[in-house]
Write a protein that binds this DNA or RNA. Structure first.
Length: 889
RNA sequence: GGGCGGUUAGCUCAGCUGGGAGAGCAUCGGCCUUACAAGCCGAGGGUCACAGGUUCAAGCCCUGUACCGCCCACCA
């Protein structure tokens, strides 16, 4: 690759140096600093805090690109703009990382002790925890980096305590012994939504449970036979006549010496299996609820690690899965096993470590979410929060309707320790934001703080206001809360988004964000989830290395259509890299001509109507593009933003406008040249501004070498729609001229006329205005089609020995002097004729339909009539051309 | 079991309020035309999953079917 330079810009865009240069400059200039000026609109976003253990994956890249596009857009619009960055302490995930590190030294966290372990986590964070932040910076994320927050920071920890204590005192936090999801590997409770259900090929074991009086038996089915040791009842449906006589007869539980009762509960499905259900209240959520309804005993048969305990009798000490095998063998030996069926069912797994979750009763802390959830639902129903795309409303409501109390305590060490103390002497439970020194009830000083920490999502639920200084009244909160929009992945709608709504509304009395944009997951090009084991992971860091950050950002923006999974194809990234390069080269070309311009060159656009058509045309197209881009950004239609920009820059500005004005730029007529230079510079500047939010690096670089003194692009102004640039007349006229050019090129190409061969063309057009228009543009037209001459007539001979191109009332002939390939030309005409015929059939169908004429709006009818006239004209001319061709053949 | 989404060119996808089916890549042909071969010019390619319905008019609205995907859920 050559690196020849033109006017200081290398021939191909070399992103690497450019990117690091601007990252430094933006940082030095504090370009991303949050602004709080009176009388301005505010635009604020809080980043979905990535886990402090995280490394940038393509989902982060998408998420943060979208946020950055909006933030840069609003900053340029002059709003008070703030993007708050930060990371999440990610309780279990981070603890796991440090535990693994310890394990390499052959130690467990218990070997080092709680305080020392936490110290180690902080050390780890200091050394390695900045990775994802560095990577976000490299992405170009224009966060106010001086405001970086961490969910374990002092300020945020204060907010967490304050919230906990207030909720407790309002009776919305309680402690109790309930069934929870337990991870035997992480040794902690998990919230319902931290359990992932995986379809698993398992077995359904049918077990024979004899009646205590020896009069018979009932068959129950289970997927987890080891839990039978904890059975404290058998449940049947109250209306099930098969079992109505069992009310007073107990069941003799196999392998034990216990007798358990039969209870009648509507939850039991009569038609499933035998209609009898073994009830293990300590190890199954449904069974727990049945047990509560019928006062069944709790019998816990496993410990915190999933190992059978003393209640399991001779099975004590066995791991739960080993126990399962042993139990099945023993049941079979003793004749209690009826049959084993293959059975596919969902098995709950820990979302962090994929260990099979064990439902267990345990003493935990809970938030009563119903009252909080109701307020969140109201906010959404009343439109105080809008959700995009809107198909998420149903899902949101149904989840909120079925929400259960939130288990917030975790039996791990890394996190916000629950601000509750137990008095050793009187047993009083003390909940205070400041550490108490003595028991308010008995005065004892023997107080022990709860060992549990809070669910990570508890602190992230406060993120929109805790990062702005709550519980203090801060200027940040006054200026930026509620935030403008939350952009996040749909898979944490409930983990996080819903909980921020609940907490924000409860504590701030105002929603935490006005809009929620939920984007899709990024998948590979076949729609498969990216995973290391499949080997289909696209690493954004490698992508940035290979194609440049702007190319990746543009690609992600182009893919970000609402409501669809994103299938990312690496070839597309390559395609958009070419686009970045195209911008670069267009700028190089422009610079060759505007390099030495002074301010006055822009005067050309002050009176657009006075300019030649092609300049009026590009200004009009620019105005349209500005409008499209602004609208699509305002509506979060990121893909449309990308496509408007791509289409306009490449196919209108580069392919047509630059080609068209080349002769003007080399003109000896100073006015002609200055018009071209002024419009060229103006449009280029507009393009750079429009593109900047999506492709900040290349645009800033080009901007910096444009003539004149200028501030950095990042903090310049975003283009407004210039209504005075809109020009329908120019657009129509240029469309005709483009048609002529395309026609001539088509004939040349179809007839295999070498591009350098000089030939002539004749345009026949009965309409004198159009003819005049085309005649006026002869120089540009011949230049762009490489003709030696172009003649325009309102009437004249139609040569047979010529290539022909017809559109509407315009006919183009390129005399070929015996070079016409009759067969090929005939085929082309036939093809065109068929197209026109098909369209005519449609139009005539409509216009021949009285109901259409009666019902369709006048404008639509008029349009159809105009279409018919044009098609008729084209059709006639094609037939004439066919006739002439026949003479020739 | 409930809910949501998808099915449009060979591939990946747009198509916002119903009014002449689009893009990128890929394909074919021709060009190193002085910004760009990471480029330029030209061309081909569609029964908009299927079946009904509403409408003057349907890729778009309604009903149903098929297949694919995701989410939620207490049939053990």
């Amino acid at each position: 690759m050559t690196t020849a330079k033109t006017n200081g810009l290398s021939k191909a865009y070399e992103f690497s140096d450019v990117e690091s240069k601007w990252l430094d400059r933006w940082s030095e200039a504090k370009s991303f600093q949050g602004v709080m000026e009176d009388g301005k609109d505010s635009f604020s976003i809080v980043i979905p805090p990535p886990n402090v253990t995280g490394v940038l994956h393509v989902g982060h890249a998408l998420n943060n690109t979208m946020q950055d596009v909006l933030v840069r857009y609003h900053r340029m619009r002059g709003d008070n703009t703030l993007w708050v960055p930060g990371t999440d302490h990610a309780g279990i995930a981070t603890q796991n990382v440090v535990e693994r590190q310890l394990a390499t030294e052959g130690k467990s966290r218990h070997d080092v002790g709680r305080d020392a372990f936490i110290e180690k986590v902080w050390e780890w964070r200091k050394e390695k925890g900045g990775t994802i932040i560095k990577q976000l910076k490299r992405l170009g994320a224009s966060c106010d980096w001086e405001r970086e927050r961490f969910t374990m920071d002092e300020g945020l920890s204060t907010a967490v305590r304050e919230v906990f204590v207030r909720l407790y005192k309002e009776g919305l936090i309680y402690k109790g012994d309930y069934i929870v999801n337990w991870c035997p590997r992480c040794h902690t409770a998990l919230a319902d939504d931290e359990v992932e259900h995986e379809d698993t090929k398992g077995k359904l074991y049918h077990l024979r449970y004899p009646f205590a009086d020896g009069s018979g038996h009932v068959v129950v089915a289970t997927t987890r036979p080891e839990t039978m040791l904890g059975d404290t009842g058998v449940a049947v449906h109250p209306d099930d006549e098969r079992y109505s006589h069992l009310a007073d007869v107990g069941i003799k539980l196999p392998l034990t010496d216990r007798t358990i009762p039969v209870v009648f509960d509507h939850h039991v499905e009569k038609d499933f299996g035998t209609g009898a259900l073994k009830v293990t209240p300590s190890h199954d959520r449904d069974d727990y609820e049945i047990g509560m309804r019928h006062n069944l005993e709790l019998c816990k048969v496993m410990d915190d690690s999933g190992v059978m305990n003393e209640a399991a009798g001779t099975y004590a000490g066995l791991d739960r899965f080993d126990c399962r095998r042993k139990i099945v063998a023993d049941l079979e030996e003793q004749g209690f096993l009826v049959k084993i069926e293959d059975y596919d069912h969902a098995v709950g797994q820990c979302y962090r470590c994929a260990t099979v979750v064990e439902p267990t009763t345990s003493l935990q802390w809970f938030v009563s979410v119903r009252p909080l959830a109701d307020k969140a639902v109201d906010a959404v129903k009343e439109g105080r929060i809008n959700i995009y795309p809107k198909n998420w409303y149903n899902t949101f409501y149904s989840w909120m309707d079925n929400i259960r109390d939130w288990c917030i305590s975790r039996q791990i060490w890394w996190g916000h320790r629950i601000p509750a103390w137990n008095c050793d002497d009187c047993g009083e439970l003390i909940v205070e934001s400041d550490d108490p020194t003595s028991c308010p009830k008995c005065g004892s000083e023997k107080l022990a703080q709860e060992s549990d920490v809070l669910d990570t999502w508890f602190s992230s639920a406060l993120w929109p206001f805790s990062t702005m200084g709550w519980p203090e009244d801060t200027k940040e909160l006054a200026t930026f809360y509620p935030t403008s929009v939350l952009i996040t992945s749909f898979d944490i709608l409930f983990f996080w988004v819903a909980r921020m709504m609940m907490m924000g509304i409860h504590f701030m009395d105002e929603v935490p964000f006005k809009d929620v944009y939920l984007h899709a997951l990024v998948r590979d090009k076949h729609g498969k989830k990216m995973s290391k084991s499949t080997g289909n992971v696209i690493d954004p860091l490698e992508v940035m290395d290979q194609y440049g950050t702007d190319a990746m950002r543009f690609t992600l923006t182009a893919f970000a259509a609402q409501g669809r999974e994103i299938k990312l194809d690496e070839e597309r990234i390559e395609g958009y890299r070419y686009f970045i390069n195209k911008i670069w080269n267009a700028a190089r070309f422009a610079l060759m001509h505007v390099d030495d311009c002074d301010e006055s060159v822009r005067d050309a656009v002050r009176d657009p109507a006075a300019l030649p058509l092609v300049h009026r045309w590009i200004l009009s197209r620019t105005a349209t593009t500005v409008s499209e881009v602004r609208t699509s950004l305002d509506e979060y239609h990121f893909n449309e933003t990308a496509s408007s920009l791509y289409q306009f820059v490449w196919h209108e500005f580069c392919d047509w406008y630059l080609e068209w004005i080349k002769s003007d730029l080399f003109s000896k007529d100073e006015t002609v040249r200055d018009h071209a230079r002024g419009v060229l510079l103006t449009v280029l500047e507009t393009i750079l501004k429009l593109l900047h939010p999506v492709t900040p690096f290349v645009t800033e670089e080009i901007w910096s070498v444009l003539p004149g003194e200028r501030e950095m692009l990042v903090t310049s102004d975003y283009p407004e729609v210039e209504e005075s640039w809109r020009d329908e007349e120019a657009e129509n006229a240029i469309a005709i001229l483009m048609g002529v050019i395309t026609g001539i090129r088509n004939i040349r190409s179809e007839a295999d006329v070498h591009p350098s061969a000089t030939i002539e063309a004749v345009v026949l057009c009965a309409d004198p205005h159009k003819a005049e228009l085309i005649r006026n543009y002869q120089p540009a037209l011949t230049e762009m089609t490489r003709l030696s001459a172009l003649t325009v007539e309102t009437e004249g001979d139609k040569p047979a020995d010529a290539g022909v191109y017809i559109f509407g009332d315009i006919e183009i002939y390129v005399p070929l002097k015996g070079l016409v390939d009759v067969a090929r030309e005939g085929a082309k005409l036939a093809r065109e004729k068929k197209k026109v015929e098909d369209k005519l059939r449609q139009v005539n169908g409509k216009l021949g339909n009285e109901k259409f004429l009666a019902n369709a709006p006048d404008a639509v009818v008029a349009k159809e009539k105009a279409k018919k006239d044009e098609l008729d004209a084209t059709f006639t001319k094609i037939e004439e051309a066919e006739a002439r061709l026949k003479e020739l053949g």
